[in-house]
């Protein structure tokens, strides 16, 4: 019997968002490489329509795991719902997108099988019959080839954008959909989640900005923000920041760009002293032109920059302000 790959698709507010389809694309890719069959699973209180939607992809079966106790996501509920499916299906790989929800429950599910998650992967390759997964380590400064040891299942999650939603193979003939009533007891779910909410309305909408000057740890002290503000002023730009700057209280949280802040795509993004950890990149890599100024030539921000300047921002930025002023009067 061919190997199976179980793809766990995330229900985001009643929809299959990009993360779910990227997980399907990842599962299909691994399935082709290893001659395996893809089974998808989606869990929730009302996920029949999502399971039907998944059945339109080129997969062998779509599972809908339902229970009223899955209405609100909980790590314990999802672990309890998925574990018996894994026991029955005996997949070689269990594939997730590396979302906040995956980070919250997939390790728990893996630990139920005495495993950990090989998380946040940027790719994989087949060597003989072995699978080698590529993960970022040291905040993306290095990559690590990581191999699962021991018996399956192997639990693996892929970083957003590693596989593309539009690369999902569709099938003319929908795959069979199986509804499974998850047997859960309310005592097994000890945490009680409340409603999702946002903090007091964001006062700065960076998503509408045409040009953004963003600062990171390289700015060194709050006094030095003046320099960034001056640059923003001559460029008619909004000021943004990476997470550590807002964590330190140097700029308010509503200036934060990245996975836990705003996602922006301006015409010009100037990154000052930002190393470009993935959490920051996901919030700005759609920018049309990216200028990165950083003293570390290995900084991951240069991976996605259009123009890179390796140097001291305290020398480069004042010169840049002067040149922009000159250019404006020309």
């Amino acid at each position: 019997m061919a190997d199976r790959i179980l793809v766990v698709a995330e229900d985001q507010e009643g929809r299959l968002a990009r993360a779910a389809w990227e997980a399907v694309a990842a599962g299909q890719s691994i399935a082709r490489a290893f001659g395996a069959a893809v089974v998808t699973a989606v869990a929730g209180a009302n996920v029949a329509s999502l399971a039907n939607e998944l059945a339109g992809a080129e997969i062998s079966e779509s599972l809908a795991l339902t229970s009223p106790l899955l209405e609100d996501y909980t790590a314990e509920g999802f672990t309890a719902a998925l574990a018996p499916v894994i026991e029955r299906q005996r997949p070689r790989f269990v594939v997730f997108s590396h979302t906040y929800q995956t980070r919250d429950f997939a390790p728990r599910l893996a630990a139920r099988f005495s495993k950990a998650l090989i998380g946040d992967c940027l790719g994989y390759r087949r060597e003989g019959d072995r699978a080698i997964f590529v993960r970022p380590v040291f905040q993306g400064k290095l990559l690590a080839d990581t191999e699962p040891l021991g018996d399956p299942p192997c639990f693996v999650s892929f970083q957003a954008g590693t596989f593309r939603e539009d690369s999902v193979r569709r099938s003319a003939q929908p795959a069979p959909v199986t509804a499974i009533a998850a047997s859960l007891s309310s005592e097994a779910i000890r945490t009680h989640p409340g409603e999702r909410f946002r903090e007091a309305k964001q006062t700065v909408d960076l998503t509408q900005a045409d040009i953004i000057v963003a600062v990171g740890r390289g700015i060194k002290s709050p006094e030095n923000l003046e320099l960034a503000k001056k640059l923003a002023e001559v460029l008619n730009a909004e000021l943004g920041a990476s997470r550590p700057i807002c964590d330190s209280g140097w700029l308010p949280m509503d200036r934060q760009i990245g996975s836990s802040g705003q996602t922006v795509a301006p015409r010009l993004y100037v990154a000052l002293g930002i190393s470009g950890a993935i959490q920051h990149q996901v919030g700005m890599k759609g920018s049309r032109t990216i200028v990165a100024i950083n003293k570390d030539n290995e900084a991951p921000i240069f991976e996605i920059a259009t123009y890179g300047i390796v140097g001291d921002l305290f020398e480069v930025v004042p010169a840049l302000i002067e040149e922009i002023k000159k250019a404006k009067t020309r």
Partner: peptide, 12 residues
Amino acid sequence: RQRISKVYVPQK
């Protein structure tokens, strides 16, 4: 349960 076989600098 897992093993790192190789660590390297990402390709530009």
